[in-house]
Design a binder for these strands. Structure first.
Lengths: 216, 216, 216, 216
DNA sequence: TATGAATGAGGGTTCATTCAT
DNA sequence: TATGAATGAACCCTCATTCAT
């Protein structure tokens, strides 16, 4: 009797682990198929066939086909968010530029790890359903706000020149997003040359393309 | 009967005009609905109801639901392409920077005119079907090549500093695309402040965000 | 050109007639199957197979499986209602008893004609969905009210003895309904001996079973 | 160990009692839910959730969802049957009319106690599956036979007038059934005024509605 | 050319039942 | 005995497309 508690615990612990493994298996399978064929072209049948589970099992783990997309999206956004920290402008903090660079590098690293999820979200998320739209819009808005804040802080510190921060922020996000898209879409298998891309993107965003002496 | 030829011509001319009007009517209706609800959520029934034509008539003008999307996409890409001319580096031509500015302005003007089509394509085009994907990829690739070419030309002329032209081109396209997206998606009704946006985007792309004396 | 109007009319008239025929065909097929196997055991597939129409065609004529049941129910209730007229107590009207007899006879005639629908409704209607329940309850309530009214009128005229009209009405309806049920359920094919049943039912309801001199 | 037998007996007795409690718990829960939502709208999940047992446990006590309905039906029919005894026509037995009255009263008492089961059976039993149908039909048939027998006996004793006993029996059953239905369906919570209903129903069945001097 | 009734493949989801633990 | 995760057959409905008129 003394082991009952332990046994039960062990059982449920093992069961829970098994549950988690299965959920992840289905999730990853769906991600793979969504990435390969797109959300609409991937049927629940495809997912369960590929994951090797029964039809009903799918609905044991996810409420609907849409729900699995939401799970994917949430996971990705959480990962991305976890790597976008606010700008630290307290004295003694690393320089803002340095912080931006770190952020870009971290984002690219997540992108590298989450290639397929990124591709799926970039391709399919918008227009799927209103709540997906809202999630994405909110995510972009938070990134946008973050960059605006960084630019304003930089201006206060004299390292960012006077400019239209709203549009500049949009340009910065757009440049990073498009570079990520290209990396993910065009060479879906090749590893991302993070160091090079990170440096080039930052260099571009900081200094533009104009030669020093060139006229406006 | 001697006038048959003429009459037929007149008839067919009138008939052809009517055909064109009808085709355009269906196309515009579809565009409106796609913009409002998305491609997948817009059914052929919705289009024919809104356009006031019979079900069969739709298929007299368009092979399929996908075909109408292709028609929309082709029209938009044609419009955009028509306003992206190659860089003219012959002596006496306007300065490359000037040409870029003109291009951006013209692009923004098309965007302004074609808001809904842009929104639809940005939202739904990718992942719809392989040939749509291919068209879009090809379009982006041509834009990309155009920008790379411009950058290389600028470097040769000494007005573009040494940089990773591939990534810089991606950054430039991405910044413009995202600014367009924001304009089209966030404020679907407000008119675009073309002048301001155009200037700010170019300023950003040319000079980045760094203040002159700031350290890298 | 002078025949255009006529032609179009003729066309649409013919089309409408065809539509009606088809709708009726599906309705009758559903009725037959519902009667044979019950509502829940009858699948849309069975109906369309038996009716010889395509799956989509079914939904062209009926919104859902439930809708076809409602259509059946409505038709039956309309038929029944059409044969239950209020009691006419104006001077010179036929005696109330006579009117009741007519009503019972007419009801039995409808039952005879609508055997299958009656069987289906009696068997399946209750508990199918709330609105079906409501319809049925309302129908029974109106019958009940009609009988109560007749009894009260009869009492006023001295031909109905003092009694609990509510319960008596329920008894009358119950006796008729059960006799109908037996007729329909037990001998689904045999023709109803309307005359005999009608007379016996009325005789029972009017005089009960007690012999004249029997004590209470 | 010498007490094993006893212990086992005690155990199994206790175990059996626990089994019975559990079975009853599930049965009552199912009855409650069937009464509230109907058989088809009640899922096994609902029953086990409400009963607080595991999914598999349900099938330890009942072979299937249908089986639990059969159990319910059997229990109800047994209760009803237990209160319908044959007519005793031996000399010295209470008068037939009295016996009928007792039967009606006892039936109504069971109805009062088994409201929910009655409602469920009246609403859902017919058409569920052939064997349920058969059970019900058999039950009604036995009631019918009982009433016919009583009527014939009554005729032999001169207390029942000449009439079509088959139809009269159907009328009697129908009137009782419908009154029960009304009581159970329309006022599911209010207690049944047994005395009044019992008297009124019998009065109706015995004497009909006609005033003494009224013409046929 | 225009019509719109008819088509039917295919999709997502439910839920009674089983069985390894 | 009790559990509850897994199963998969079955079902209703949608909607892009066709074709007789």
């Amino acid at each position: 009797m003394s082991t009952t508690g332990t046994r039960v615990d062990g059982r449920s612990r093992r069961a829970e682990a098994a549950r988690d493994r299965r959920r992840t298996r289905i999730l990853e399978t769906a991600l793979k198929l969504f990435a390969e064929r797109g959300y609409h072209a991937t049927h629940v049948s495809d997912i369960i066939d590929a994951a090797g589970v029964a039809r009903g099992t799918f609905y044991l783990y996810f409420e609907s086909k849409e729900a699995i997309f939401h799970a994917l999206l949430d996971r990705l956004l959480a990962h991305l968010r976890a790597h976008v920290v606010g700008v630290d402008t307290t004295p003694g903090a690393p320089p803002v530029e340095r912080q931006l660079q770190q952020t870009v590098r971290r984002l690219l690293e997540v992108v590298e790890r989450e290639r397929r999820a990124i591709a799926v979200v970039l391709r399919e998320a918008v227009g799927l359903d209103p709540s997906v739209d809202a999630k994405l819009r909110e995510f972009y808005a938070s990134l946008h706000a973050y960059v605006v804040e960084a630019l304003v802080a930089g201006q206060a510190m004299g390292i960012v020149r006077p400019l239209d921060v709203e549009i500049a922020a949009a340009c910065i996000l757009g440049s990073i997003k498009h570079v990520m898209e290209r990396a993910v879409m065009l060479t879906p298998e090749a590893p991302l040359p993070i160091e090079r891309v990170c440096h080039a993107v930052l260099d571009f965003n900081l200094r533009g393309v104009l030669a020093d002496g060139a006229a406006s």
